[in-house]
């Protein structure tokens, strides 16, 4: 039996120690908001926060995470979609197919936690998630909007 702290709750599960966090979240814990895109930390669809740091969970063995570490997934970013990043995303209707967007939102939220007023260059350097529909310009605009929202 292993334990992780996810969205403020201690979760127990059985999984092989080398199972990536992504698959424990999706399969053992039933939280499918965190997506599988590539399995090699290239696309960022699986982004979650571990102790506040945006982390690509598809290559993170669960055995490497302590129970004391705080994991936040898209399901736990806010209780009702009211995080400033989610609100900005809604205001600008950012998603198209939406599959990459939960990872994109988690990456954006982490960026704003460490850099509340990111420049375009900061965003370009930090938001490296892949979107095939082509939402990048709206992602950029929504991050700026959320930055304003947070400051206000």
């Amino acid at each position: 039996m292993a334990r992780l702290t996810v969205n403020g709750r201690v979760e127990e599960f059985e999984a092989e120690p080398d199972t990536p966090l992504l698959w424990v979240l999706r399969e053992q814990l039933g939280m499918t908001g965190t997506k599988f895109g590539c399995g090699i930390a290239q696309c960022g669809a699986c982004t979650v926060h571990i102790d506040g740091v945006a982390t690509r969970s598809c290559v993170m063995p669960v055995s490497s995470i302590e129970e004391s570490q705080k994991i936040v997934t898209i399901e736990g970013l806010s209780p009702d979609g009211s995080h400033p990043v989610q609100k900005a995303w809604l205001a600008l209707d950012v998603p198209q197919c939406g599959y990459c967007q939960t990872g994109m939102i988690m990456a954006a939220a982490s960026l704003l936690d460490t850099n509340p007023k990111p420049s375009d260059d900061d965003i370009a350097a930090e938001i490296t998630n892949i979107c095939r529909c082509g939402t990048y310009n709206r992602v950029r605009a929504a991050i700026h909007m959320a930055a304003g929202d947070k400051a206000g």
Binding site: T73, E75, G81, P95, Q101, T102
Partner: peptide, 10 residues
Amino acid sequence: RLDTADKLTG
């Protein structure tokens, strides 16, 4: 769009 909200929360 009619289908945005659920794409923001998982």
